[in-house]
């Protein structure tokens, strides 16, 4: 298969030693196997995430994203823009829809962009890495490079919110998307399709500002995984991953539970199935160790 090239928007949390650094590590390993070349958008900036609305207005947030699109179109012409972070993808897409659909906003955005020496004249679409995998490769092609079976592991697929709503993956339902389960099965793992907290919100950014309310959400997400006999949760979203992993100890401390449910990225289990080591799959980047997946990765 010919090499596929994309303009990559890593986002703040995927940088080295940031909260989703291990997502980036595993994505790199997965892409190497699939012969995907990701080139960072030169000098990219933050998308503004979902929580910046009290500080930045609609135009300011759109301009942040327009700068990234313009740099992508200038330096990596013709390449689709790909994000691995749910919030990066959502906010970029939302801004792009507004800029491309509203001539007044576009004119104002360009007036602001001029200050940075740039001009936005449209760009390639903004896509999620999962869309690339499913649409540009397909489950059968993703299965081909598998060298290690994940058959011993039971995965509860936790899709979360922003990879799923409001845009989602084409052809999937908002209430019960199946692609994560299908990815797990393609890698030979056992997908617990009856897991019922698949699209529950973890609290998102409000895990910081409203910890008790968010921890109630996280408790539901983790408890349901235990109810299904899961070995670990798997998610596409960096904030879901961080919130669900990080706050289990807080819930244990406050509520006397004994949660210790690992949560990994889809790209980590794919990297392991493709033969990556513990380190290359970013499995050394967890507070709650995904032991069963680490064991398979460590096997020769």
């Amino acid at each position: 298969m010919a090499k596929k090239e994309y303009a990559f928007y890593p986002g703040c949390s995927s940088q080295s030693k940031a909260s989703a650094a291990n997502l980036q590590t595993s994505v790199a390993a997965m892409c190497k196997t699939l012969d995907i070349k990701l080139t960072n958008i030169p000098d990219w900036n933050c998308c503004g995430a979902s929580i910046a609305y009290a500080g930045g207005g609609e135009l300011e947030r759109a301009v942040m994203n327009a700068r990234n699109f313009t740099l992508a179109a200038k330096h990596l012409p013709g390449q689709d823009i790909v994000a691995t972070c749910a919030a990066c993808w959502l906010n970029s897409r939302e801004s792009k829809d507004k800029l491309d659909g509203n001539p007044q906003m576009l004119a104002q955005a360009n007036e602001a962009l001029k200050e940075a020496g740039l001009n936005y004249q449209g760009s390639a679409p903004v896509r999620h890495m999962v869309e690339v995998l499913i649409e540009d490769f397909g489950y059968d092609a993703l299965k081909k490079p598998v060298v290690k079976s994940l058959a011993e592991i039971k995965f509860a697929g936790y899709v979360g919110c922003q990879t799923n709503r409001p845009f989602g993956i084409a052809g999937e339902s908002f209430e019960n998307p199946m692609y994560l389960d299908q990815l797990v099965e393609s890698m030979g793992g056992e997908a617990l399709t009856a897991y019922d907290q698949k699209v529950t919100c973890c609290g998102g950014a409000l895990a910081f500002s409203e910890p008790d309310k968010s921890q109630k959400q996280i408790r539901d997400i983790v408890e349901a995984a235990y109810d299904q006999g899961a070995d670990m949760l798997v998610t596409p979203c960096p904030l879901c991953q961080a919130n669900v992993e990080v706050y289990q100890s807080e819930i244990n401390r406050k509520q006397g539970t004994k949660f210790k449910m690992p949560i990994v990225y889809y790209s980590q289990l794919m990297a392991v199935a493709y033969g990556s080591s513990v380190k290359a799959a970013g499995l050394d980047g967890h507070i709650i160790a995904p032991t069963k997946l680490q064991q398979i990765a460590a096997k020769k």
């Binding site: 900036n45 933050c46 995430a49 929580i51 009290a54 500080g55 409000l206 910081f208 500002s209």
Partner: peptide, 19 residues
């Protein structure tokens, strides 16, 4: 608290351009 966090987040990510 969410208002405060929202403002902090915006100030943080626009200070240099990344969080």
């Amino acid at each position: 608290p969410t208002r405060d966090f929202s403002i902090q987040f915006w100030n943080n990510c626009t200070k240099t351009g990344r969080v």
